[in-house]
Structures are given as C-alpha cells and as structure tokens.
Design a protein around this nucleic acid. Structure first.
Lengths: 206, 206
DNA sequence: GTCTATAAGAAGATAGAC
DNA sequence: GTCTATCTTCTTATAGAC
C-alpha cells in the first residue's frame, strides 16, 4: 500500500527533527492524514516504523553508492573521470556534491536522524561511522592512491589525504545541518579548501 | 546545597547518553539516591535541571578557554609558546589535547549532550557551532596568522588552514565518542595528519 | 529536605463497528 | 483500512506528613 510508504516518509521527517521519543504516534498519524490507531494496521508498533526507516536508509545508501561518485565502491572508474579535470572543474564538482548532500531530502533527513540517535545503541553508532567516516574515507583513499601512483598527486599516505580532504567538507555539512543560513559561507570555505588542497598535493600546480 | 550539584551531575550523565526525553525524573532521583519528589525542592521542574546543565556547560567552557590553549582567546600568548616547538613536540601536544577532550568527563558529556540535542532549538544549534566550529577555528586562525607573519608557515588563508588542521581532529573526536574502541586508530591518524600538515605548511620542513 | 500517597495528563496500543 | 472508544501504563508534578 501507498499509506505504508507515506507513514515511513512522514515519520522520517518528524524523527529526524525531534528524535524518536519526542515524536508521538499521533504526530505521525496526523502528518499522514489518518488517525493513530490506523497506523497499527501497517506496523506492529512505533519501533517497527523506526526499523522500517533504518531499512530504507540502508537501501538508499547502497543505491547512492552506485550512482554518486563519493561513497562509491569502484574508485578505479572514478579515477579515470577525475584524471583530466582542471582545478576549477574539481572545485565545482566538490561544491555540487556538497550541495547535493546538503539539500537532498532523504540524505539530509537520514543524516540528522543518525546524528541524534547515534548513542542509542551500537548498531546506530556503527552505521553512522560507516556512512560518514569509514566508507567515504576508504573510497577517497583509493582515489588518491591512484592519483599518487599516476603521478597526479605527491607521495603521501592516501588515507591521511582522504581525511584531510573529507573532514573539512563533512564538518561544514554538519554546520549547515544545524544552521542552514550558513550555506554561502560554507561554499566559500569549501572552494578555498579544495584550492589549497590542490596547491598542497597536486603535482601540476606548484 | 551539595544535592543540587549532584542532581546536575547525574542528570548530565543520563541526558548525554539517552537524551532529554528518555531520561525520567525518577531515573535522575535514583542516580542521586533520593526519591523523585525531592528533586522538586531543588528545581522547579525537569526543564530547569536541563537549563542548569546548560549554564554549567557555558561556565566550564569559559573557564577552559582560559586554561587550555585550544579554544583560547589570546592567540598572541600561545603563538609564543608554539613558536619554537619541534614537530614531534607539536604532535605530542595535538595528541594530548585530543585525549583530554576525549576523556575529560565534563567535556565529553557536554559534547554528547549538545550532539543529540542540537536540533531541539536554535539556541542549542548556535551553542554547538560556537563551541565546536567558530571558536576553535577563529582561535587557530589567529595562531596560524601569526605563524605566517613570522615566516614559520607558508602564506595561505589562515582560516582555511585552521579548518584543515581542526576538522580532521574534530571528526576523529566524534568517531571516538561513538566508538571509544577506535582511540588507537584515531591517535595514529592524528599523528600522521599533523605530520603531513607540517610538511604542507611549515617553512622549516621541505 | 526527604518521604509516601496521589493527582493529572499524556502516550502507546487494542477492541470492535463500519 | 479507517474510524471511535477505551484500556493500561508511564511520567511529571503536587500535597502534606515527618
């Protein structure tokens, strides 16, 4: 049924803003446009709704990993794409990717949900670290490793490069999640960060 | 009274782990060793306890700013201290500071509390950004500005340098808050990060 | 200042009609 | 599948004795 999907959708919006405990089944029902008892025809209880959201999150993430460059699992392919890109184009790609992660509803809502629920149990903690630390880092690490071996980048620990590239952008993303009005400032910082990163590591520049 | 202090202390521990709404006045009372109604002789209601914690957080932060280098408000003084420090000593300072922020109870609990409550209202959002983005960045920006003007560092936007230095360390701190078992891994990354940062920006190295 | 007893209301969930 | 009515339990908070 379509109602089941709508419940998940609306519950995600509510949970990501107020957290699991501060959203009442009545709130979800109201957002969906039904009465609270009707929810129980679609889900056994409130926790089941939360679990269904987590399932969607995992599915979405796997799909995104295939579509979007960042987080992807095939660095070799992407390395070819990035290989001949100019600095300005590289900056544009970084900004575009940042804006996608910031503005895409599902991306943003899932991220905020994991942020405020990350200490609830170790499953959520692991999921957060995987999606916002481990996977981006290992993917970008692979990418930089290739750049180094092809002489595009200077020699250095690829994983450290990945951390130095990714952490500033991730940090600015969390700033904008809290304070969306700082988007312009964040974009400026990202541009300057990538520019500086290129100066530090690109073999062409210097 | 000492009980009032103990209430704040225990409530902070509970709130920082489970969030405001999942901690019941009964839990707090039990942790303190009294019955729930007795809490109301010390605080008007549950929200007042939360506000008292926020007050402590702000006070602590101001004090820390004076004592600890990072977050401080007098970069000129600290610049003198750092001026003649070797790379290895610099790395040791970075690791020590990281471990302090990670292990100091109040620091850690306040940070986790703000993390899970940051979307509750704009006051908390602003507080988080101030303490974990704006203030560290502007302080370290000042420091790097001095390093650049004294020729210790290469010319670059000091604020971008600050972001590139701070964001990886901050990111690793959030990883360890979620997964304390990754402390060794984080320390290794911090060491390599600072080493690489020095290669990039120090005028001595090269 | 701490207790027991209890009020007042909220929140999750079920029963059963339609 | 949705509704109204209702149950049960939990949670905050107050009253009033000690």
């Amino acid at each position: 049924m379509n109602t089941k999907k709508k419940i998940i959708e609306e519950a995600l919006i509510l949970f990501s803003e107020k957290g699991y405990s501060d959203v009442y089944v009545n709130d979800i029902a109201k957002a969906v446009g039904i009465k609270a008892p009707s929810l129980y025809k679609h889900f056994k209880n409130k926790q089941e709704i939360f679990h269904a959201i987590l399932e969607e999150l995992r599915e979405d993430y796997t799909k995104q990993a295939a579509n979007i460059g960042i987080h992807g699992d095939n660095a070799n392919v992407d390395a070819g794409i990035y290989a001949d890109v100019t600095e300005e184009a590289f900056i544009e790609m970084g900004k575009k990717l940042f804006l996608y992660f910031l503005h895409d509803d599902r991306m943003r809502l899932f991220r905020k949900l994991l942020t405020i629920e990350q200490f609830r149990d170790s499953e959520l903690a692991d999921l957060y670290s995987k999606q916002y630390y481990n996977d981006p880092l290992s993917y970008q690490g692979e990418l930089f490793k290739i750049f180094i071996s092809t002489g595009k980048f200077k020699r250095a620990d690829p994983l450290v490069l990945a951390l130095q590239f990714y952490a500033p952008i991730y940090t600015l993303l969390t700033v904008c999640d809290r304070q969306p009005e700082r988007e312009q400032e964040a974009l400026y910082m990202i541009e300057e960060h990538i520019r500086q990163f290129n100066i530090n590591y690109s073999e062409d520049k210097q």
